[in-house]
Design a binder for these strands. Sequence first.
DNA 1: AAAGGCACCAACCGCACGTGC
DNA 2: TGCACGTGCGGTTGGTGCCTT
Length: 309
Amino acid sequence: MGRSPCCEKEHTNKGAWTKEEDQRLINYIKLHGEGCWRSLPKAAGLLRCGKSCRLRWINYLRPDLKRGNFTEEEDELIINLHSLLGNKWSLIAARLPGRTDNEIKNYWNTHIKRKLYSRGIDPQTHRPLNAAVNPTATPAADTVAVIRSNSDGSDDNNSKFQLATTELGSANNNNNATKIVKTESACEDSNSSSGLTTEEAACARAQLNLELTIGLPSDQPSPGNRDKFKRQARDQPRPDQQVLYHWYGNFSSSSQGVCLCYGLGFQTKDQACSCKLAMGASAVTTTANPPAVTENATDMYRFYTPMNI
DNA sequence: AAAGGCACCAACCGCACGTGC
DNA sequence: TGCACGTGCGGTTGGTGCCTT
């Protein structure tokens, strides 16, 4: 038996929303909050599919949306984040307060792609266009994404946990070329087919460190998305994935935690989090029960948005 | 002024994933 | 364990307005 449709299509409006529909949706959400999208249309007196209501609210009606043109800074941030995350528009949007994934996706397809082409950069690979067919070519982007793989080679389901970055060689290389692109699992086993020699792996552990300075995270716990954060907590990678967690301070509604860095990179387990210095020590706490870390672990420090469960 | 092409973007669609029963 | 459901995501479509010829 297939799944039931999300709504009775013959009884729903489609296409552009009217002002009256918008107002009904706004009024309902003001009174009852977000969530239960399937039942919302009926309760709000709207002849719309629940998904349509959700989209309309998230992409257009939400009061915290920033309207208007993208700034040059936002452009560059999107380009950098895309080089790290690929077409993960929701993750990119989470780093651009007031912007939606749909908006960024549209903007990417209509503006930034062209901009990158005009710079001679392939928007998908972030490599020079004339190097697209050369697998050994040096990436042009300032940073390169490394997708964390589980030890069995599969990707982690939660893409929030997939983010990792490497940047190497800025100290001894003035052209900003990124030198190493390896999966974390490959680094954990220098004898694997990854191609990293023991020396290279050690070198990577010693030198890899990227801090992306990004704006305020908009993906913060709220009554509407608290479950999402609970799930993230529950879905923490297994201890054998050797991840240390830092949760940010006090996240009550009156005191939001602020994360200004995506401090990602390879560090030894005894090494202090450099992000601490940037943020102020009081803002960072280490989880009380970090996963076990083995002696020779390659630790991936990750920084998460606030959590208040 | 009309027609065609193009750019933009809101909205839709199908699918994946997590949860609860 | 399997199913139904709710939600979210990324890709695509279609309507609209502007520009060019």
